[in-house]
Amino acid sequence: MIEAPRKYGILNQMGVTTFIRRELAREWRFFRYTVFGPALQAALFAAVFLLAAGDKMITFDEIGFLEFLIPGMMMSAAMQKAFESGAFSLMDDKLSGQIGDFLSAPFNAFEWLLSYTVSTFVVSALTALTVWGALCLFGTVVIPQNPLLLLGFFAAASIAFTAFGILSAIISDKWDSLSAKEVFILAPLVLLSGSFFPLNALPGEWQIALLFNPIFYMIDGFRYAMTGYQDNPPELGMLVAWFTAIIMWVAAFICLKRGYRIKS
């Protein structure tokens, strides 16, 4: 007797859940680096900021220095993780040839990208949480003021950076070129977009440049949801953040669907 092919509706749910589980299992193998790496780095930065500024610590309007820093460091760690998680996985699959295993499966580009989006969201949220935990040890515990808004900004950032990571992995032929994108594009974007300093710390013309940087709106909005401090109205921030996330996601989707640099 020959078994009939498995049937599924619009979404191959089994494919998606399997792929998500595979991605999470992959991350779990490296959890020491995933968890301790960003947390340790954030703790070192916080220690340095506190020791260097000490009693002369400036407060940004009504909130404390650490309160200002904590959301920024959570976001920058989460953004980098969202980028890495999807990008490293796809790059590895591409170079090892494993990618054929899911290109030939009944698994379309939408399901594929959806799986990456979900798994990197989980991983980057865990990263943000460990960074938060590490920074709480410094004595300032920041409790989110508006959890819903927080989730909205976080999801937009996570989706945008997952898509950015996938796009980077697609156009990179070697690990070298992927890590070059991480060091020369991702790191400056993430670190110079208001994670460590407020808008008004910059000289005038740079402030204008920052206002054209969508990542700034993501970090600023996340900080508002957490502490109430804002450089921009959160409504505008949410609009910019999701607009960016959707554009990036659609671009990654189109590339995956066409098999650009994936299917020869």
Partner: peptide, 17 residues
């Protein structure tokens, strides 16, 4: 590049304090 980024971050974040 990373070191220059550090210079930017720390001077911007701590420069006034």
């Amino acid at each position: 590049v990373t070191t220059l980024l550090f210079l930017a971050i720390f001077s911007l974040a701590l420069g006034r304090a």
